[in-house]
Computed example of a mutant assay.
Amino acid sequence: MTMNYRHLGRTGLRVSPLILGTMNFGELTDEATAFRIMDEALDAGINHFDTADVYGGPQKPDMEKGYGISEEIIGRWLAKSGKRDRIVLATKVYQPMETGPNDKYLSAYRIRRACEASLERLGTDHIDLYQMHHVDPDTPWAEVWQAMEQLIREGKITYVGSSNFAAWNIVQAQYEAEKRGLLGLASEQSLYNLTQRTIELEMVPALRALGIGLIPWSPVGQGLLTGILAKHDEGRRSSDRLTQQLEKLRPQVEQYEALCREIGAEPQHVALAWLLHNPVVTAAITGPRTLDQLRDNIAALDVTLSEDTLKRLDEIWPGPGGEAPMAYAW
């Protein structure tokens, strides 16, 4: 397996095509396992680690939230490993961390305080990619970019990204950033996989036009694209939501898994390879809970899909019909 690094959008920064997502660290993955996952990911060439201030989950019975645990685990790993300069470290801001009126969203006050708190938990003096976790319609972009610009000047963040934006949010944010002479957005994290292709209408063409890297989250459709039929039919436990989705999409899942068997590739590998085939995609986030899951994700980089297979995947999982407005108007 060769790790072919890609530019993060139009920037000069090179990142691995798989990103180590750490949402499970502290909640579903204990610290010792998380350390081993980070060690092995970096040894395999994965140089982009992604977290958020709210990741981690409750750690004790008397804790209501447990927010910040994932960042703290990464911080302790960085202190132990001494490998801070070998990774591109990304975290996020927006979600409520406490119950006060200014403990959430994207005011300049909130961004500054959240960044300082993340830096402390991570045990570092800078964040390589600071991402807005959602859009804040109540804070003007001039205020958001003023806060980000100040953090950049202070050396506390290097690049700014977004997550869960609409295409028009991306364009608006970029316009306001360029008015201030800033680079603006380097990347956007969006829900994107074979089962969820809505962003092909407007988000994908907007990112391509602006040179902003696409980072898909939920690349295996919350488990639908992992060979779920065999697991489900064997009686393995799955969430009620996933079971409902499977019953709704069972005919397509059956065709998909049959195609994967035909080409001799694991379903989860095909799902990741399909995303990475898109030139707008910089990298896909994978959130392994175990070392075996990490190794399985890395194996996807050895899968190459033929034009015939790509066509058949489109037939099984049709997108919105192309890009707007041609997808729905003459």
Rank of each mutant, 00 (worst) to 15 (best):
K92H: 02
D136T: 08
L122S: 06
V270M: 04
Q146D: 15
G184A: 08
E31A: 07
E254S: 01
R180L: 15
N193S: 11
I111Q: 05
G287D: 15
W317V: 06
E72I: 00
T2C: 00
Y105K: 05
T22K: 02
L207E: 15
G181S: 12
N4Q: 13
A324R: 05
E149D: 14
D240A: 13
S70P: 05
L42M: 07
A300I: 13
H232T: 10
M38A: 06
G181L: 13
L106W: 04
G82L: 12
G26D: 13
L28Y: 03
S218N: 11
Y94W: 15
L214W: 09
T304R: 06
M203F: 01
L20W: 05
S118D: 12
W330F: 02
L185F: 11
P137R: 11
Q268C: 06
D233L: 10
M148R: 09
S16E: 14
D30C: 03
I19S: 02
N297D: 15
V204W: 01
I111H: 03
R110H: 15
A271M: 07
L129R: 00
V144I: 15
D103G: 02
A108L: 08
G66I: 01
G322Q: 11
A108H: 11
E143L: 03
Y159K: 01
E247Q: 13
P61H: 11
M63Y: 02
K156C: 06
S70K: 03
H277Q: 09
R14E: 15
N102I: 09
G213H: 10
E143P: 02
P267L: 07
E176M: 14
A147E: 14
A52F: 00
G319P: 13
L13I: 14
E154Y: 04
N193V: 08
T282L: 08
Y67R: 00
G221Y: 07
Y109C: 03
G322H: 09
Q255P: 00
I19R: 00
R237G: 10
V253H: 05
I298Q: 07
I46P: 06
L183Q: 08
T139I: 10
A271Y: 07
H277Y: 01
V144N: 04
R208F: 10
G123T: 04
S163R: 01
A327Q: 10
G227E: 13
K311L: 12
S218Y: 11
L294P: 05
L18A: 04
R121C: 07
E116H: 04
M38P: 04
V144K: 04
I69P: 00
D43T: 04
P251M: 08
F165Y: 10
Q131H: 04
H7P: 02
T158Y: 12
E98D: 13
I263A: 02
A329G: 00
Y175W: 14
A327H: 11
Q252H: 12
G45N: 10
R84G: 10
R197F: 03
V220P: 02
N24P: 04
G235Q: 12
C260P: 07
A230K: 14
S162D: 12
H232I: 06
A209F: 11
H48M: 12
K156D: 08
L259M: 09
G319H: 10
T11V: 09
K65R: 09
K60D: 09
T198W: 01
E262W: 05
T11I: 11
R261M: 08
L210P: 07
Y67N: 03
L78I: 15
